[in-house]
Structures are given as structure tokens and as C-alpha cells.
Design a protein around this nucleic acid. Structure first.
Lengths: 246, 246
DNA sequence: CGTCTTATTGAAGTGTCTCAAAACGGGTGG
DNA sequence: CCACCCGTTTTGAGACACTTCAATAAGACG
């Protein structure tokens, strides 16, 4: 095996070390044994802070690294010339950003911080190099890309065949489940995005999103106070998704 | 470097060798130099034929390989329990199928042949093994997955913000461009799928798809004879996509 | 040649959008 | 601390694109 001089050197900066990161069970190092993990600490070159409203990268930027969200919250969006705007996803702690850039060496979307955030910068050259040495890392990276594809197909189903209320229900259940996986309450959520951003993600106008929230509140499914959402009846949300009129 | 006894042995079956395949410039081996390519011939374990209407794999099948379309035409679809059905893509020669399965070791969608087809079976274990030895292959594989993500985001834009005619225009232009890349006429296409399958892909009902075809014919943009489509005015199609009322 | 799938076309229905106005809340400066 | 401003959210009424339902036509296939 190749001596990992670079990785060993990186251990001198424990603050960017995957092996000491409390997100490692949600992030790229999933499934990599502890002893190997220490030799992976050189993977993260540095951290980078992005203030609310600022971009981590933009459409057209040369692709050099992928990013793992450490703290904060992002949206990704594509913005064709004609003024349209599609939010393609929301990313929270442990999730990867920038995979879209690998395909042709330039980023294909914008990544915008919805609150002050911090990311781990993982240079793609490092990632490929280390993937060759650590099959577990290679595997996990492939899994993350594959799951992104599967997730996107789920969104296509949502956009292609669901009505407004079902879309919002799916969105809220997904958010709830991801918060739960991070140790937060699945029933009390604070939305980081505006109604318009939700709408642009779900293929709806902001007024429609707002109306759906109101409807859910009338029906006793949610308590809505601005961006503070309490899920009162998660089963009702789930039923809404399952009992759709195919 | 590890001696590639397996790959060398595979050269005994030239019929499944990437190095002799006329699709190699469109498929996984893109960008791999000729001398390396010969040592990659062990990547394809075998070929497999799939008759029209039959599935290459189904949702839930254990994931073992990805597939490169050699001849024929496929659709992929996800089928939730509730009877809904979303076509997530159409695949033609040189394109990869099965990437959805990497994420959790089982396929997440069905792949259905729309005509009698043949695929190259690329065992995932081979692919990962060879990726470690051939950085060019690793890179190309990443690119293919990344482009699939970018493509899906484009479909999300389509489903989230375009009207019926724009969706069909995007669909036809995409098909046209892919046919052109394979040496076929970009203006004379024979659709392999029904109006319903197009509709399920584009988030429209089959009647709407049919009406759009009729409209395009009235406007002199297309000549439509069943599944034989002639693009009379490609610029008009392009304008329809660009001049959308964002 | 008959049957079944696929495609076309029409008329009525409905979900979402558009346009518009008002309420709310967070931040800033007086 | 209050007044003000501006972005966000809510709510209503009317318009419109697409769907639904239904009937017919055209091909494909045995």
C-alpha cells in the first residue's frame, strides 16, 4: 500500500478530520472502519464558510471539489437564460454538494446558502486518488451519486403525477425524516426556505403552496406559524401520499 | 501494475470486447487510450438479449451489474404501489442502465425493452476493480453518473415549469440530438414509445401529447404519421423552448 | 379478416395560475 | 421605543391549461 504522507500530515488539523467529525455516520465516510478512517483525514482540504444568501458555487464555475455540508442549509437551483428557475434540492448537514460538476468539469447549477453555513471542501483529485486506495470510500461515493439519481427520480414522480397537496406532503415528510436522522424532532420543523423556494422546488406557485399550508392547518394536520411548522398528524400526511388517485 | 489475466483471457471473445465495439466513443470507454482499452476487455462479462416488452431488471432485483445498451431501446420507470407510473428515461445505444441500483444494492426501477434489444453486462465488481486500475475509467464512470444527475435536473425543470408544447419540444430536440450523435438523421425519427409512454415521461396525459403533435403538424413544425416524425422546422422547436414566458 | 392496441378529436370539468390587495413580521433609523 | 419600510405570506376572484370522459379512427398482429 502507498504510504499516506499527505493524509498523515492532515492529522495535524484535527478540526477538519473526518475521523473526529460527529457527522461521519451521515456523510461520505459511512461504512469505513475507524482504523482506515484516520488515514482518510487528508481528504478534506479545508473548510469554507458561506453567508446566508451567498453562493458556494455557481453555474459555469470550474469544477474542482465536492462539498459536504457541515452546518447550515443550502438550496441548489438551475437557472436557464429565459428567467425560469428550478430549485433542484435542499441540502442539510452531512449531504454532498457539487456532484453535478463532474460531468463536464463545470458546475451545472448554483448552490445558495439559506442560512450562514459551513462546508468541508473535498478536492475531487483527492477523492479519486483516495477512492483508488480505499474501496470502502469508492463504494460510498458511488452510493451517494446513485442515491441522488434515485432521489431525483422520486422528484420526477412528484412533479409528473402528484397534485399540490400531495407534493407538499411528500416534501414535509422527507424533511421531517431527514431532521429525525440528525437527532432533531421530526414533528417540529423550522423551514429555512420561503414559500416561493418551496414552490419552485415542487413545481407550484408560491400562492398555491401557501394555500396548501392553510388547508393542512384547517384540517388539523399541521400547525403553521410562518416558517414554524408542527406536524400534528403525520399519518394523515402519509395517507395523502399513499391514497393518491393513481 | 497488476497483471490482467482475466482481461487478457476475455480477448478470446472478441464479440464482447469494448476495444472492437463501434459504440466505444459513446459508451463507458470514452477517453480511454487504445492501448489501455484492450486491457479493459474483461469488463463486459457477457451480452444479454431482451425481447420487446420484457424487462432487463425490475424494482427490487438485487443489484449486480450495470448494463450498456448495444442495440435496441429501453425505458426506465418507477412504479409506486398506488398504481402511479413515472417513466424516468429512455435509453438508446451506448447509454448505461442500472445506476439506480448501486445506492442500496437493489434496483429502484424497472428497465423495459421497447424493442428487441441487446445489452452488455458489466458486473459492478469488475467495474469497481478496473476503476481502481484505470483512472480514465473511474473518471468516465463518474462523469456518466454526474451527467445522469444533470439530465434529471433538466427533466425537473421541464416538469416543474414548462407547458405541454414546450415539454414535447424539449423531448423531440433531445431525441433528435441523440440520434444525430449516433449517425442517424436528426430530422426523421421513428418513435419507439407510445403516446402514453411519452406522456408519462413528460408529466402529461396521452391525449395532451397527441394534441400537441397535431398542433405542431398544423403549424408546419412537424410532419406526423403515427410514430414517424419528421422535423420540418427545428428552429421553431428551439424557439418554443427559449422564448418561454419564464 | 377480425380483434386489440394505439392514436385522434371533441366537449365539459377542475386544479392551478394570474392578478390584486391586504396583513404580517423583521429590521432599520429616527 | 416607536414608526416606517420592505420582503414574505395570506386570501380572494377570475382566467386558462390540462384533464377527464367519450366516441371514433387507424394500425398492428395473429
Amino acid at each position: 500500500m502507498i504510504p499516506l504522507t499527505d493524509a498523515c500530515a492532515a492529522q495535524a488539523k484535527p478540526n477538519v478530520a473526518c475521523s473526529h467529525c460527529n457527522l461521519r455516520e451521515l456523510c461520505l465516510p459511512v461504512g469505513i472502519p475507524d482504523d482506515e478512517l484516520q488515514r482518510l483525514d487528508g481528504m478534506v482540504a479545508t473548510r469554507r464558510s458561506v453567508r446566508r444568501g451567498h453562493t458556494l458555487f455557481r453555474h459555469g464555475d470550474p469544477f474542482e471539489a465536492v462539498y459536504a455540508v457541515r452546518t447550515g442549509f443550502f438550496k441548489t437551483r438551475i437557472t436557464p437564460e429565459d428567467g425560469r428557475d428550478q430549485v433542484t434540492g435542499f441540502q442539510m448537514a452531512g449531504e454532498l454538494l457539487g456532484l453535478d460538476g463532474i460531468g463536464n468539469d463545470h458546475h451545472a447549477c448554483d448552490a445558495v446558502a439559506l442560512e450562514d453555513s459551513q462546508v468541508c471542501v473535498i478536492p475531487y483529485s483527492q477523492l479519486t486518488q483516495l477512492s483508488r486506495e480505499f474501496p470502502g470510500l469508492q463504494r460510498q461515493f458511488h452510493k451517494i451519486m446513485s442515491r441522488e439519481i434515485v432521489r431525483d427520480h422520486g422528484v420526477m414522480l412528484l412533479l409528473g403525477s402528484m397534485r399540490a397537496e400531495e407534493r407538499l406532503a411528500v416534501f414535509l415528510l422527507n424533511l421531517s425524516q431527514r431532521l429525525k436522522a440528525r437527532g432533531f424532532s421530526p414533528s417540529s420543523l423550522v423551514l429555512r426556505m420561503t414559500r416561493e423556494e418551496i414552490g419552485t422546488y415542487l413545481g407550484l406557485k408560491l400562492e398555491t403552496v401557501s394555500r396548501c399550508f392553510s388547508k393542512f392547518q384547517e384540517d388539523g394536520v399541521l400547525a403553521v406559524r410562518q416558517r414554524q411548522i408542527d406536524v400534528l398528524d403525520p399519518e394523515a400526511l402519509q395517507r395523502l401520499v399513499n391514497n393518491a388517485h393513481g
